[in-house]
Simulated assay, not measured.
Amino acid sequence: MPMKRIRYSELLMYFALSLGGLVSVLPMIYMLSTSLKPNGALYEYPPHFFPSKSNITVENYIYIFQQQKFYINFINSLLVSVLTVALAAAISASLAFCIARFRFPGRRMLFGLVIATMIIPGTALIVPQFELATFLHITNKLWGLIPFYVAWVIPFSTFMIKGFIEGIPRDFDEAVYMDGGSVFTVFRAIAVPLSGPAIASVSIFNFLTAWEEYPWALTVINDNAKRTLPIAIAGFFGEHQFTQWGYVFAMSVASLIPVLIIFICFQRYFVKGLQTGGIKG
């Protein structure tokens, strides 16, 4: 009887996981299948989830890749995302190292404030952020997006990296100090390399945040040449009197390529960083 219960529970678990995975993947499958349909086939009745062999076409991708603005918006998004990841990793790792390794007045309060900012909805800050951007004269500037994106992702990044650094034995720090190294040496030679999985995992999240962010970029960027890829995708809605869904989904599929590449390359760090940071944070 115990063996049967275990098997039934495992079957139920696998079924639930399979169902959840299917529900998660279906939108992407539909997006890919729709991008391979001609625009006229999208309004056929009855609708088909997958295109027939006669309707499969790559004309949507050809149209997208022939548009110069696609490459401009793609590069804009890539530039903003990469700089956001780099700056956020440097600032978050430094802040997490200080909180995890030093005891100073207000340490707990500082970390509490960092965590508290994680519960504030991003849309609630659009108005004060816009006033700040106007005061700093960084509206309608591509690089003006980066400071705000970095500020958004620092709390979560600090939380994850701090939990990882706390799991590093302090004996390593003492060994560096005994050899005449400074605190900067400990940070550079011990904390950063050993917390690499945590930094890599949060960097994936940070890249996704900057890559797919839409409301703030739409608010402060007016120049088409400075817009990011999500705004360019939204520009196809109603552009030709009705929405060209084939173009929309083709550009959406193309926008997933950098995300997939990054996740595949850093997958092992991503899983390890989440497990360790989540347990020890």
Rank of each mutant, 00 (worst) to 15 (best):
T228A: 07
Y214L: 15
G181F: 12
G163P: 09
R188H: 11
R170H: 06
L145F: 02
R188G: 03
S157K: 00
N224S: 09
T158S: 07
I146A: 10
G181A: 13
F236S: 07
F184D: 08
I221P: 04
E212C: 07
G235A: 12
A198C: 12
S201W: 02
T185V: 11
A198K: 01
V192C: 03
P193M: 10
P169R: 13
P193R: 10
F207W: 11
P147S: 05
I204P: 00
T219E: 10
P193A: 08
I146K: 10
D179C: 02
A210P: 09
F156I: 13
V220S: 08
T243F: 14
V248H: 11
L194M: 14
I199Y: 04
P147K: 06
V202G: 03
F237K: 08
S157I: 00
Y149N: 03
M160K: 04
F249A: 10
W143P: 07
F184Q: 11
V248F: 14
E212R: 09
Q241G: 02
F159D: 00
Q241I: 10
I199D: 04
F236N: 05
Y247K: 03
F205H: 13
G196I: 05
F172G: 00
W216S: 05
I233M: 13
R170S: 12
F184L: 15
V186G: 00
